[in-house]
Design a protein around this nucleic acid. Structure first.
Length: 679
DNA sequence: GCAGCGAAAATATCT
DNA sequence: TTTTCGCTGC
């Protein structure tokens, strides 16, 4: 029998403008050229995962795929933006028309488009977890659940439970049983609270982060027409950082999957660090079961780190109980041996790090190629003081977000009631700012507000009491102005700031700092066209950097990066300092009793180590100054047994500097290390 | 019903 | 160390 081969209608490699085969290794090329059907790319740290995705986007578009039929789901919106920008620069502008963003962002877009089908108004508000906790707190008091003799969980714990059951797609009662055994007597009340919370959100047109995902799932599961429409829009779906998706998100991937089954997911099971959000690192290995016929491509050549850094990384991973099928290799040279720096205390650690960074800067290493990483946002507080002292500019990622601060939320709440008059949460917030109005009065106003066509005429409510009359009038006047004035967000925030500043001064002792933040907010909203976009952006894509500048950063030198390890995911720097590398910090003391959590901390350590290209410095202080005197510390168990063939111990020597004893370390340029061979 | 104070408890990582 | 709770006086 004669076989006739039907050629697929794709361009031949030779016809591509971009010379993919020159730019990529064979495995990367395989992923980039992968055409149809599901694919799983297992990409170890530093193996060019992002590069592969970027070239795949370019390749698809070069082959004639309509950019708007490509969906690229990433972990942060910043990541999506950067990838598409880079794809545009290797190919052309068309790449910027690819649909990209986080699951939450894409779902919010779908829900706004199909708001009728889910019986919500298009102007629903998205609430962040701080808002969600406030609602829960309120309902908790309302349901009188806190009156019980036995301890009832705190609002954050409650939200963790509710959110956990949603994201992992398991029953709340089972979750309480498994993970919160100490509260099992309250299972029934917790269930009631969950129900009340859901009713409240529906009534006031609010959606929390989980709702964005769950409502989309419901919509696509129940409405065949919408599902078909959505699936038709995707020719290709790509998901980055798939190891950090949860059960709900993988269900969504399946629902987005077009009939062509063109789904490519990329990730590294050894870098899964979001279990606390319901992510399951096993998810990625089970992807072939989600979509049958999955092609598996593995990237193993690391281009980022020196061989010595990779050896440390591998020794971390070797401690895992869960063995990862990963043998990263590099053609890079050994490089310097990573340093293990033991300091007297946290102060000395800060002085060492800042001094080293100044030395590096003198050796022409730009500040921006250096990063300091840590487990918790607060672990860098002391260093921040030192950097300020030395006038080293830095930017910090992770920790409390700018938009989480109470004063920022206060200001934005005024805009939110304009956008969504049913947003009782924001109403309560802004009413309680007025002297004389507490929870009871605020809730009386809520009563009046529901079903009132002009909620901003607060004076006509018949609730006006002498004690808060003037405050209420000013608020009412402000809101009416905002509603009718058709201001830009910049003008609106200006008005609110004027109204709010005196309140801020009275409410907070540290108001100078907060007033400065308000200025920053004001400057920042200049780019937004309307309230809706502003509020949505701030909820889904909060300003990542929490801090801010240093005085005396005259030059436009790009700053040093301080970051939590979580926020450092996917990034790399030439020199990386890992500070506070202590047992109880990493691994966190909360994780010590649980195998799975401990394993996640180990992966976190792995992520931290693999961020470094040229040089890695692992630092820990021997003493921790606490409230009740000094506490001896233990270095992290993950590095405790690393031999001197892996990590070179550095001995810090103090140099006498009678003139200025702030500067106890050797001057820049002077040798700072000695081999601690004698131990 | 509100605000302020002191005691007690919890305490991270992020969309 | 900071946030939350409960109590007291206005």
């Amino acid at each position: 029998m004669k076989r006739f081969i039907l050629k697929k209608e794709t361009q031949k490699p030779s016809e591509y403008l971009i010379k993919y085969s020159d730019l990529l290794n064979s495995q990367q090329l395989k992923a980039v050229m992968h055409d149809s059907g599901p694919a799983l790319v297992i990409a170890g740290a530093g193996t060019g995962k992002t590069r592969t995705l970027i070239y795949r986007v370019a390749r698809l578009i070069e082959s004639g795929t309509d950019p708007s039929s490509v969906l690229l789901l990433t972990f942060t919106r910043r990541a999506a933006r950067e990838m598409l920008d880079r794809a545009s620069s290797v190919l052309d502008e068309r790449c910027n028309r690819v649909k990209g963003g986080t699951f939450h962002f894409y779902c919010s877009q779908l829900l706004r488009r199909y708001h009728k089908e889910i019986d919500f108004p298009a102007g629903f508000s998205i609430i962040d977890s701080a808002d969600a906790r406030d609602v829960i707190q309120m309902l908790r008091a309302e349901l009188k659940l806190n009156r019980s003799d036995k301890r009832f969980p705190q609002k954050s714990t409650l939200l963790n439970m509710i959110s956990g059951s949603v994201n992992r797609q398991i029953e709340l009662s089972d979750l309480v049983e498994q993970d919160y055994n100490q509260f099992r007597d309250h299972t029934e009340e917790i269930g009631r609270l969950k129900k009340a919370y859901e009713e409240y959100k529906r009534k006031h047109h609010l959606m929390d982060f989980d709702d964005l995902l769950i409502r989309t799932q419901e919509l696509l599961n129940t409405d065949e027409r919408v599902r078909a429409e959505v699936q038709l829009q995707h020719k290709h779906v790509m998901v980055d950082e798939y190891q950090d998706t949860n059960a709900l998100q993988s269900a969504l991937v399946k629902l987005f999957t077009p009939y062509t089954q063109n789904v490519m997911v990329v990730g590294d099971d050894a870098q899964s660090i979001y279990a606390f959000r319901g992510a399951d690192h096993k998810n990625i290995m089970q992807f072939p079961e989600l979509l049958t016929g999955t092609e598996i491509i593995t990237l193993e050549e690391n281009y980022r780190s020196t061989a010595n850094i990779l050896r440390v990384a591998n020794s971390v991973l070797d401690q895992a109980r869960n063995k990862y099928e990963k043998k990263l290799f590099t053609k890079r040279e050994d490089g310097e041996l990573p340093a293990l720096v033991k300091t007297e205390d946290t102060r000395e650690q800060s002085r060492f790090v800042s001094q080293m960074i100044m030395n590096l800067r003198e050796q022409e290493v730009p500040l921006h190629d250096v990063a300091v990483l840590f487990r918790n946002a607060r672990d860098s507080f002391d260093l921040e003081i030192e950097l300020n002292k030395k006038k080293l500019p830095f930017i910090k990622y992770g920790g409390q977000k700018f938009a989480d601060a109470a004063h920022i939320k206060d200001v934005l709440a005024h805009l939110r009631v304009i956008e969504n008059p049913a947003d009782a949460l924001s109403w309560t917030r802004i009413l309680m700012l007025i002297d004389g109005i507490g929870p009871k009065t605020a809730s009386d106003f809520m009563e009046w507000l529901s079903g009132n066509t002009n909620p901003y005429e607060l004076a006509s409510s018949g609730l006006v009491n002498e004690s808060y009359k003037s405050g209420l009038y000013s608020l009412s006047q402000l809101l009416i102005d905002l509603k009718n004035g058709s201001f830009t967000p910049y003008e609106a925030v200006g008005h609110i700031k004027e109204y709010y500043s005196p309140i801020c001064e009275k409410k907070f002792d540290d108001y100078p700092k907060r007033v400065k933040d308000l200025e920053a907010l004001h400057a920042l909203v200049v780019d937004y066209r309307d309230y809706k976009h502003l509020l949505e952006e701030l909820a889904l894509d909060p300003i990542e950097a929490t801090a801010i500048d240093v005085e005396g950063t005259s030059e436009d030198e790009k700053p040093l990066v301080l970051s939590t390890i979580h926020s450092a995911k996917g990034l790399e720097w030439k020199h990386v300092f890992l500070i506070q590398c202590l047992d109880g910090v990493i691994p966190s003391s909360f994780s010590l009793n649980d195998e799975d959590s401990l394993e996640e901390e180990l992966r976190l350590m792995y992520v931290a180590v693999t961020r470094a290209c040229d040089m890695l410095y692992i630092c820990y202080p021997m003493l921790q100054h606490g409230g009740f005197g000094d506490v001896m510390t233990k270095p992290s168990r993950f590095i405790e047994h690393a031999g001197q063939d892996l990590l070179e111990p550095w001995l810090l020597t103090e140099e006498e500097q009678p003139i200025n004893n702030e500067n106890l370390l050797p001057e820049a340029g002077a040798p700072i290390k000695q081999l601690n061979s004698g131990k």
